[in-house]
Amino acid sequence: MRCLLVLPLLLAAALAAVPPLLGPTLPPGTELRLLSADLRTLHGAWRVEGRRLLPLSPPLAPKAGQEVQLLLVLPGEKPRAFPGMAERGDVFLPWEKEQVSLLRLLKEVYGLAPPERLWP
């Protein structure tokens, strides 16, 4: 019986460990753009529509381990850039002394349904 009471607490603690790095919410119309570190190459662009993350362009895969910039454009706000590292169809964003998966953030923190990989 105690295990049943502890399980929800452990699950909540695990989900709470993923910080809302991109802000409190990602409302519909929010755009995410993945650019090279020098901002010259657009690797992909996506828009939040309801609970889905829809591609705006075909992705151009960055090299594994390549430094990238994630540009977050919330409706009616100025764009914000986040440094990251491209790896296996995902972007890892620095948080404290760790790296946090963008796809995991989108799923667990923001409740979105992104694709399994941002690029093939």
Rank of each mutant, 00 (worst) to 15 (best):
A17P: 12
A17I: 01
V18N: 05
V18G: 00
V18P: 00
P20T: 05
P20A: 07
P20Y: 00
L21T: 07
L21I: 08
L21Q: 03
P24R: 10
T25M: 02
L26K: 07
P27E: 06
P27Y: 01
P28E: 13
G29A: 05
T30F: 06
E31N: 03
L32S: 02
L32A: 05
L32P: 10
L32V: 00
L32H: 04
L32T: 01
R33I: 07
L34Y: 04
L34P: 03
L34A: 02
D38H: 03
D38N: 12
D38W: 10
L39Y: 12
T41E: 15
L42M: 08
L42V: 11
H43F: 13
G44F: 00
W46I: 01
W46P: 11
R47E: 15
V48C: 13
G50N: 02
R51S: 14
R52C: 09
R52F: 10
L54V: 15
L54K: 10
P55Q: 10
P55A: 02
L56H: 04
L56T: 04
L56W: 06
L56C: 09
S57Q: 12
P58M: 09
L60M: 13
A61F: 04
A61V: 00
P62E: 07
K63F: 12
A64I: 12
A64G: 13
G65Q: 10
Q66E: 15
E67M: 08
E67D: 13
V68D: 04
V68Q: 09
V68W: 01
L70W: 02
L70D: 05
L71N: 13
V73R: 15
L74G: 00
G76E: 10
E77Y: 02
E77G: 00
P79K: 08
P79T: 08
P79D: 04
R80P: 03
A81S: 14
F82S: 12
F82T: 04
F82E: 11
P83Y: 08
G84W: 05
G84N: 04
M85S: 07
E87M: 14
